[in-house]
């Protein structure tokens, strides 16, 4: 049971870091508009704090992912590492006044179903390793 909580906490932490990164990317990009392949754009990107939120999110996600992979089965870990699309979509409604249009909801359902299939496929391929993985 303790192992279950460990995984759940790990997956939620991974999702949290990924979500932080994506939201930070959006803020950083919006504040650096207009986009251009120029030094001025780079200076605008790195001249405000949000870009560093993205860096923290990336680094946090990387170490959480590496720790999870050592202990958790790869299939669920793979799926969890990509399910931040759900949290990011919901947050973007709240933070950026975006709309959950029909194509976005339908597309998200298909993508999530696909990610679950891929996670299941990984689980099947790595059965021996996951069985012997210590917690």
């Amino acid at each position: 049971m303790r192992r279950g909580y460990f995984y759940l906490f790990g997956f939620l932490l991974l999702m949290g870091f990924d979500t932080l990164a994506q939201v930070s990317f959006k803020y950083a990009g919006t504040q650096a508009l207009p986009v251009s392949a120029s030094l001025a754009w780079l200076l605008r990107v790195f001249g405000q704090p949000w870009v560093y939120g993205a860096v923290i999110g990336y680094i946090g996600a990387f170490f959480t992912w590496m720790t999870l992979l050592k202990h958790a089965p790869i299939g669920p870990a793979f799926a969890a590492s990509h399910l931040e699309v759900v949290s990011v979509m919901l947050l973007s409604v709240w933070l950026f006044d975006e709309h959950l249009t029909t194509p976005r909801v339908l597309g998200a359902i298909a993508i999530i179903a696909g990610i679950v299939c891929l996670g299941l496929a990984e689980s099947r391929e790595h059965v021996p390793e996951t069985d012997s993985a210590p917690a």
Binding site: Q22, G29, V35, V88, M89, E98
Partner: peptide, 10 residues
């Protein structure tokens, strides 16, 4: 920065 975040991540 050019499209909605919900669309971008998808």
């Amino acid at each position: 920065s050019l499209i909605p975040l919900s669309e971008g991540v998808l």
